[in-house]
Design a protein around this nucleic acid. Structure first.
Length: 270
DNA sequence: TTCCAGGCGTATC
DNA sequence: GATACGCATGGA
């Protein structure tokens, strides 16, 4: 799908109707985007920082980036080659999903880094989003950016104490040990069929069904992965006792994000 | 004070 | 395979 953008004053000006910065960057899929100004968010993918602003009428300003970097990094990260208009049209065959899509039509799945997504969702377990952001914020402040596996290789449960991550610290250490030690390759996980990928990730201590699904969806862009947390559990019990509708086939994870955001923030009762 | 949060490991049946 | 319970931390 072609992108509609121009390069102007060192910024990329993008026209994209199916994007809302708050809905996408602050809906619990990524934890280190910060609202730094009116309609403006600052964050990063790997070691590249970005400030992006919404300028109304489906226009966005990606600040201080060039067409090459925009095309090679940010277009992919924001999943701009996927037509979310078509996705929402399909989902809208279902009544509940139709409402969820209408409630937050600017949600997109971010194509995050595998290690960052895996470790972030290890931290997320039995935790709340503000506190998850706090822990990840302290981690990134310590390293001047999100630590890669080389950085993490020197850490122990004790050395990570400043994170105040509680029982999750030892899970991070186990993940690093298994990946650095060679018993798990994230590159191979990316190529595995979904069941093998699930099994492999779940050999890490602290990675169960939910964390594995989140890592696969947000870190490996496996849109068929379907994380079930306490919120989505309520969605399924109340509205989909017989499972998801057929219109979500292959995109269950994307549907999940609309539903998660809808039930968590809209104030509706179930 | 008690409950809860983008769950999971362990014990027990 | 299902179910019960503990777990670090901090905000509501």
């Amino acid at each position: 799908m072609g992108l509609d953008y121009e390069y102007k004053d060192n910024d990329i000006i993008l026209r994209q109707p199916d994007l809302d910065l708050e809905q996408t960057l602050d809906c619990g899929q990524a934890f280190r985007w910060e609202k730094t100004d009116e309609n403006t968010y600052t964050g990063a993918f790997l070691n590249r920082r970005l400030t992006v602003s919404s300028e109304g009428d489906s226009l966005f300003r990606f600040r201080n980036t060039k067409p090459k970097e925009f095309e090679e990094v940010w277009a992919d990260y924001f999943d701009l080659h996927t037509d979310y208009g078509e996705v929402k049209k399909r989902f809208s065959q279902d009544e509940i999903l139709s409402k969820a899509c209408a409630y937050a039509p600017g949600i997109r799945i971010l194509r995050q880094d595998p290690w960052e997504a895996l470790s972030s969702f290890i931290i997320s377990q039995n935790n709340n989003i503000p506190r998850i952001k706090g822990i990840i914020g302290r981690l990134c402040e310590h390293y001047g950016g999100y630590p890669d596996l080389e950085d993490m290789a020197q850490e122990t449960e004790e050395s990570l104490g400043y994170l105040r991550a509680g029982f999750r610290a030892k899970y991070l250490v186990d993940a690093v040990q298994k990946i650095k030690g060679g018993s798990i390759s994230l590159d191979l996980v990316a190529k595995m069929d979904i069941e093998d990928a699930r099994r492999t990730l779940r050999t890490i201590k602290g990675v169960g069904p939910k964390v594995a699904e989140c890592a696969l969806l947000f870190g490996f862009y496996r849109t068929e992965a379907f994380p079930i947390d306490v919120w989505v559990k309520r969605v399924m019990a109340a509205w989909y006792p017989n499972g998801l509708p057929d219109c979500t086939k292959g995109m269950e994870g994307i549907a999940q994000q609309y539903l998660f955001h809808y039930i968590r923030t809209s104030g509706i009762e179930v």
